[in-house]
Design a protein around this nucleic acid. Structure first.
Lengths: 134, 134
DNA sequence: CGTATTCATCGACGGACGTCAATATAGACA
DNA sequence: TGTCTATATTGACGTCCGTCGATGAATACG
């Protein structure tokens, strides 16, 4: 798969102060995808939501489970849940009147795997991780 | 170390729709620290900065190295560099007129390690990771 | 059918964020 | 000392984001 499209780092021309490049630089598009994933984790409320969901025995929780410990309004909780869904961390399964949100298995580990390579920020989605699906 | 202070999840009282908790829920303070770390990674420009710095042979880059490929003004680049420094991902060493920014070894891996535990979001800083140091 | 409950969506408000031009600071070199 | 270069800081502007109340949609239950 061709990764380097933007940021060709063609000719640095001047640049008398710096060392040369040794590894590949992430493409702008991939950087945007990576940032979108971590932006979902960049809010304390959403971090707490993931923790609460994960702490349930079956890794499932409905909105009513979250609204009380978070001390937030119900629309706000639904708002954050949607963001975590769009980022690929949660799934929703509606049963009766209730909506149960569950962790996508391996999604958090996959996001952490992106940071594992040092600074390469490997844009390879580590197997079965479909973050945006836009 | 006492972790559970906020979010005692004392008595759920009603809650006829949900399953009980099995694991510990992250404290609100720790959630804020985790979110602060990932918020620094939640911007495409900052992701690209980390990638560019890491792609240099000695994992160092000065501001002039970044300004051109990012196509941003110099104050904006300095702004993002400061955020990445405060988050504990970069260090600055000024030599002469130039300021060289370098990756903090293991900082990205440590951040990724937080996601590795599934949804526990273990607030244990995995050895030698001092993110805020505020 | 009507009512109640659970959740999603809408519109609005305030604060935070990314960006820039202008300015300030600090070191290198005459 | 003065000037030039590289970087940091300031102030301002527009946009995005988190939050809420109000409303809408869908299901359960009399």
């Amino acid at each position: 798969m061709p990764v380097a499209e933007l940021l060709p780092v063609t000719d640095v021309s001047a640049a008398a102060c710096c060392s040369p490049l040794s590894k590949e630089v992430i493409a702008a598009d991939d950087a945007e995808a990576v940032a979108r994933t971590f932006k979902a984790l960049g809010d304390p409320t959403r971090v707490r939501i993931l923790s609460i969901v994960a702490s349930h025995a079956d890794q499932e929780a409905c909105v009513c489970d979250l609204q009380e410990p978070l001390e937030l309004s119900q629309p706000t909780v639904s708002h954050h849940l949607k963001i975590l869904m769009d980022a690929g961390f949660l799934t929703r399964s509606k049963r009766g009147t209730w909506a149960y949100y569950a962790l996508v298995p391996g999604s958090l580990e996959a996001a952490g795997q992106v940071l594992a390579g040092g600074g390469g920020l490997e844009s390879v989605r580590p197997e079965g991780f479909e973050p945006p699906t836009f």
